[in-house]
Write a protein that binds this DNA or RNA. Sequence first.
DNA 1: AATTAATTGACTAAATTTGGCAAGCCAAAA
DNA 2: TTTTGGCTTGCCAAATTTAGTCAATTAATT
Lengths: 98, 98
Amino acid sequence: MENFGEKIRRLREDKGIYLRQVASFLEIDQALLSKIERGERKAKREQVIKLAKFYNSDKDEFLTSWLSDKIASDLNSEKNAIDILKVAEEKIQYKRST
Amino acid sequence: MENFGEKIRRLREDKGIYLRQVASFLEIDQALLSKIERGERKAKREQVIKLAKFYNSDKDEFLTSWLSDKIASDLNSEKNAIDILKVAEEKIQYKRST
DNA sequence: AATTAATTGACTAAATTTGGCAAGCCAAAA
DNA sequence: TTTTGGCTTGCCAAATTTAGTCAATTAATT
């Protein structure tokens, strides 16, 4: 179960390039990118999109990975997490049906 | 599909009491409670718990309603919302299985 | 019309997030 | 064993978001 940080670290290592190169493309400090790859910090939406470009990957797939991380981390300490997701899904379905 | 704000407004109206009475119990301005009931502002976790007490309701049910609102609003503008939820669920399941 | 409740908008305060910098760590090369 | 280069860590500052109040307005109720 790969999270967003792991995904972009894997892609970077596959390419065999350094943090600093990607960081410069994103116009952020490499220390920050290091934190993002390790999941210590969350990327911003714009950065996710830029990363998808950088790695020639699908933007929506990146966004899905990133957003699902966010939700999972919101709910990780909730004992009823799965239940909450179900209710959220119903709410979204409902809203879309109107 | 009742959201958190609607739920606590309904409960208050059933009891036939005023915003100010509930607001005073929560130690916030009634204007803020009005906004929370109408979904213009989000309650804090502690307030949700206090509200469950106030209305003799189940705390977990209140938290589920409130958190699922939060998630639904995070995803409402995402075209892949349902997909994202699925992935988030897998991530949570996975984390729990470790 | 007078009271009282609820809403709204504008503004402030508090909290959270995002980011940079500098120092430190560690492995590999010299 | 020293140096080099990449990555990580901790700490502080800036920026953004969110929670909150207050005062004015609107809507009901009597």
